[in-house]
Amino acid sequence: MAEAPEPNSTFWHPYFFLLTGIPGLRGAQAWLTLVFGPMYLLALLGNGALLAVVWIDTMLHQPMFLLLATLAATDLGLATSIAPGLLAVLWLGPRSVPYTTCLVQMFFVHALTAMESGVLLAMACDRAVAIGRPLHYPILVTKARVGYGALGLALKAVVIVVPFPLLVARFGHYRAKTVGHAYCAHMAVVELVVGDTRTNNLYGLVLSLAVSGVDILGITGSYGLIAHAVLRLPTWEARAKALGTCSSHICVILAFYVPGLFSYLTHRFGRHTVPKSVHILLSNIYLLLPPALNPLIYGARTKQIRDRLLETFKSKKSQFC
């Protein structure tokens, strides 16, 4: 049990927070499991299948597919960090989450989001080298460098996100224990704090601009180089083939950044015009939609992966026939 409220209606350090789901949609929350449940299932099966295919098929142990496997692993972690708790809240109603567990979830959600953005930038750079300097690609982009790059992205995500739970943990008083959200988002918890939260707000804004802003600029620059290289190709067929290798990545970028940008803008500038339930719904879609769509995009548009999956299904089918 948490300590009794003080006369000034604030709580000392709480033992737990109460997640309420999506305020304003209480009557429809159970039905939303029919949306988020299949999305999580797709994320599990799709990304799990991608990881298995890349792991089993040695022909896919190439930098591009290793980056894809890194993206799939990140998607699995991101979806799993939010979906089980989200589905429990939507189906069963408000649930209590231990204070420490809430901070841990906060860390993983934001760290894996930063990791995914970094992987998308790395994939854009990979395509820029492959199209702009194809003869030097095997030398410049190696499996070892991809491994070191993935490790560097993970360490960067940890370093820049660790301050989030630490900045929250420094507070000792809260005006309530009920979080009007489906997961322990940083700003949703900060709204309950009694004290000066300007540092938290500033760090959240700076981090959003620094991570997403820098990565988007890097992706834009990479595609500028790709466009320059494609325009130098002699035939339309060669240009179409070169751009075709980027189509899956472009779709994945749009699936990640467009919902994220819309969610960010509604949170920062639409608080008084956009209902809070809409903002929370968008933030959940933003975190679960890319993990569900990415394996479908790459599975459908990448020939090597598509062929390997078809071979696997055919071999399984022949075993049962």
Rank of each mutant, 00 (worst) to 15 (best):
V158P: 14
P94A: 07
P138Q: 08
K314A: 14
A176L: 11
D75C: 15
A52P: 06
A130G: 01
V35H: 05
E6R: 15
T199L: 14
P134A: 12
A114E: 08
C125I: 01
G180R: 04
A128W: 04
V162M: 14
F164Q: 10
T142M: 10
I253M: 09
W91F: 14
L167V: 09
I82Y: 03
R308L: 10
G132E: 03
S247I: 08
G195D: 04
V190H: 04
H173P: 11
W55C: 09
S263N: 09
L135T: 11
L76M: 12
N200W: 02
M106T: 15
L217A: 00
G149M: 01
D215E: 09
A169K: 15
H228C: 12
V109N: 05
G270V: 13
C321V: 13
W12E: 09
A49I: 14
D196E: 12
Y148K: 11
G270R: 12
I216H: 01
C321P: 08
A176W: 10
V119W: 00
V53M: 08
V168A: 07
A73T: 13
R175V: 06
L281S: 05
V206Q: 07
A73Q: 05
D307K: 10
T33N: 06
S283W: 01
L45I: 13
P234F: 02
P23V: 06
G218A: 00
V193R: 02
A182R: 00
M64Y: 15
F16Y: 12
M106G: 15
H249L: 12
P38F: 09
W236F: 07
S277C: 11
E116H: 10
A4L: 11
R232L: 13
L135C: 12
G46V: 06
V53K: 03
L66A: 02
